[in-house]
Write a protein that binds this DNA or RNA. Structure first.
Lengths: 345, 345
DNA sequence: GCGGCGAATGTTAACGTCAACATCGGCATG
DNA sequence: CATGCCGATGTTGACGTTAACATTCGCCGC
């Protein structure tokens, strides 16, 4: 009941089998050049025969590196996060690092610092933080000294490197698109409070309207789920003045579309809708959704590249990387009902 | 350029600071009882003062365990996989294990064995394999001896423990539901070839129809994406005989719904649609999608529980766990159009 | 008052790997 | 033929932790 301990063969086993010293085995394993071809082959054979696998714990202990990157994240299965994680993982592997996951349930201070200490014990050379709804900027999060950190999509901080989607540019793209179609103003279903992304999008939506001298309608805040988009949408779209809505993500846009269908308001003939994310499904919503594409892949790979550079150099220079977005125009947006079809100013 | 090596303080630093031996520090860190309260406090203070963090590499080396579980997976960001990964991660943390991710791009033999050897070097005590489209059953995959493995949702194998969703029961639920509504037969948009889940669903759909003595229409195979559901759906639904379709997942069902909208065929009045997965968005498709709910959470937690037990006991007894599904009835299914009402569009 | 027991604490060695240094033998050079 | 160098290989010790064993000391029972 208590076992499970049979350690695998080690270098000395291989060395004995091949009739060489442990150091020579080490050299073969690490691909050093100064080993005679015949000897190398003998070692290789011995390795195969005894089923040798290098022990990463010993290796990590020896050279003080784990070749692993920790990812602290909440809401692992949310669309954006899982895409980002996929990109991070791929990039890490390309750099020869593996990924250690540290999930955080509620992003409270306690949970996060707890995750940090666990992470620290759990053998990583650097950390990527991927937590939205980050209430921690004020009460300084305690980081193990000298552990490189990259923060993705969160409030600007001065103390470590950040990689962000250009939320402001994306939201402006969405809002401007609707205004250019001729809508008087644009309504907004926002993401949750305390989410950096949600707040940045809302801020940019608001300032874009102001810049164009438009009325800024009251904001309805959801929580990223389609469900919340549906309830907010149901409220919003009883108002026949509403002709254009910018939802802070595609899932809420989906809920909004459903609410519009239920109320019998045609999209895009009566109401135009824009989302944010460009998830794979958005092209197949009914109608297909105009949205803002963000490059999760680029974000992930830039984050890892930066982190790996910091790990290798020991350099803690704080930088900030911004990844641009793009408008994807589909069938959910059109000029408002009043205008003639041809008013695309 | 070459630095980054400053190792943190170790036990001996703490010991010196607290005026005790390293062993006493170890005892405090591990919460042994046989340390005097005053001494313990002194050590705790010293730990804080020097900023001590346990070194997991040394610990792993010492006791031959990493307290980490590897997850080999493809398509990390696909809906089901990310949900399962989330559940696995949560369960692992609850058991005191962390998760190391090993992504696999194309699930070819080479890629997977490569991932395995990397994984093995990368410090794990057990492995969860989460790869659909598993072409590897025949050419035996080479596993490091004695590394416990749990395989999720793949072809039955005799050599390690498996955890599967009850695909057959789910597909039968979907098919029976449509038959009971009065449809003559049920069409099927299947998942990709070589996917265990896709094949199991198709097989059960087919046998359910046969059992009820119904005609088995030709199968259209997609690739899980909404896009493929859309193209297959466009083909399928030109045929006015089609009144009920079972799509092998929700995303393909979404594409199908879009095709039906584009062809002007009403759902569910003219055509009923059932999906599989119950992703969060499905309740907000238009119309809301009847689907089969699978419990990713249960699958993940059972997989981890089994794996952890195997790790602890050293016991390699092969078991097989089946997780049931449930029908979620929403608005996309209804009785077929009456015979009197001829619908030709 | 003595033998001994148990709780608190210290000492030692080993886990597997690899850098640093040591050794050995061959070969070119003068 | 002595000198010295170079490439291949071996030996040693240290990385940080902890199990196992050793030591110390106060205290109990007879």
């Amino acid at each position: 009941m208590e076992r499970g301990q049979q350690r695998g063969p080690s270098m000395v086993d291989v060395a004995r089998e091949a009739g060489v010293s442990g150091q020579t085995v080490s050299r073969v394993v690490n691909g050093r050049s100064n080993v005679e071809a015949a000897t190398r082959q003998r070692v290789l054979d011995a390795m195969r025969r005894v089923g040798y696998r290098p022990n990463s714990a010993a290796r990590a202990l020896r050279n003080g590196q784990f070749r692993s990157i920790g990812v602290i994240m909440s809401a692992l299965s949310s669309f954006g996060n899982s895409r980002t994680l996929e990109a991070i993982t791929a990039a890490a592997v390309a750099h020869g690092y593996s990924i250690t996951l540290m999930p955080v349930g509620q992003p409270t201070q306690g949970e996060v610092t707890g995750a940090f200490s666990k992470l620290n014990e759990h053998a990583v050379d650097g950390v990527v933080i991927l937590i939205e709804q980050y209430e921690l900027e004020t009460s300084e999060i305690e980081l193990p000294d000298g552990l490189p950190v990259v923060v993705i999509d969160s409030n600007p901080r001065t103390d470590h490197t950040m990689v962000n989607i250009d939320q402001a540019q994306g939201a402006e793209l969405a809002t401007t698109h609707l205004l250019e179609l001729g809508h008087d103003t644009v309504w907004h279903i926002a993401g949750p409070r305390h989410s950096y992304a949600a707040e940045a999008r809302e801020r940019a939506w608001r300032s874009t309207l102001r810049r164009h001298g438009r009325r800024v309608p009251p904001v309805l805040a959801g929580d990223w789920t389609a469900e919340s988009g549906h309830t907010r949408g149901a409220t919003l779209c009883r108002d026949s003045e509403v002709t254009a809505v910018f939802a802070a993500n595609d899932q809420m846009a989906l809920g909004l579309l459903r609410a519009l269908h239920e109320l019998g308001r045609a999209v895009p003939a009566e109401v135009s809708v824009v989302g944010f994310d460009d998830m794979a499904e958005s092209a197949h919503f009914w109608p297909p959704l105009t949205t803002i594409r963000q490059s999760f892949a680029e974000m992930g790979s830039r984050a890892v590249a930066t982190l790996v550079a910091e790990i290798a150099s020991g350099d803690r220079t704080v930088t900030s990387i911004i990844v641009p977005t793009a408008l994807v125009h589909r069938a959910s947006t059109a000029p408002p009902p009043g205008r003639s079809r041809t008013t695309a100013r």
